[in-house]
């Protein structure tokens, strides 16, 4: 079972397919869950405190907006953990955790720099593309190591 970073990190489709084909999807929900389930200073709604943009300095310089650094504090560790990634390139309407284009550019760059295997594709626009989309994801995932279980 490989850890596969999904982009958009909020994607239902990618999260489902990665898990369905026996691997572990790494997405925004894991980062948010970790914060929501950790005791500390109350900072609704996401339990992201002003400390997080400071932690994000590991991934982006101080002149980068706080929202980018705060988001990178969530995604940076997940990207470091990832063994592969699937990227949907035309994810133009992913909001919230994926709502900032500058963060998204940095996530994609960091993934491409990391040297892990990456599958890049677009959302399907019809049934025929749906067939190709699923087949490509399946093939990519089949090529990843499955030490634990399929």
């Amino acid at each position: 079972m490989a850890k596969v970073f999904i982009y958009p990190a909020t994607s239902l489709i990618l999260s489902d397919l990665v898990a369905r084909f026996g691997h572990k999807p790494l997405g925004a929900a894991l980062g948010i869950r970790e914060r929501i389930q950790t005791a500390g200073v109350d900072s609704p709604p996401l339990q992201i405190t002003p400390e997080e943009p400071k932690r994000g300095l590991k991934y982006a310089a101080v002149e980068v907006p706080s929202g980018v650094r705060g988001r990178m504090a969530i995604y940076g560790p997940l990207i470091e953990e990832a063994e592969a990634a699937i990227i949907v390139n035309d994810a133009d309407l992913a909001f919230g955790c994926m709502g900032c284009a500058r963060t998204n550019e940095l996530i994609l760059f960091t993934l491409r720099q990391s040297g892990i295997p990456i599958l890049e594709l677009d959302y399907p626009g019809d049934e025929e593309e749906g067939v190709r989309f699923v087949a490509a994801v399946r093939k990519f995932l089949d090529g990843l190591p499955e030490e634990v279980e399929a």
Partner: peptide
């Protein structure tokens, strides 16, 4: 808004 939750300041706005 954009970024308030991820900057950790949404609670300050509330």
């Amino acid at each position: 808004s954009c970024g308030s939750e991820y900057s950790g300041v949404q609670n300050e706005i509330y």
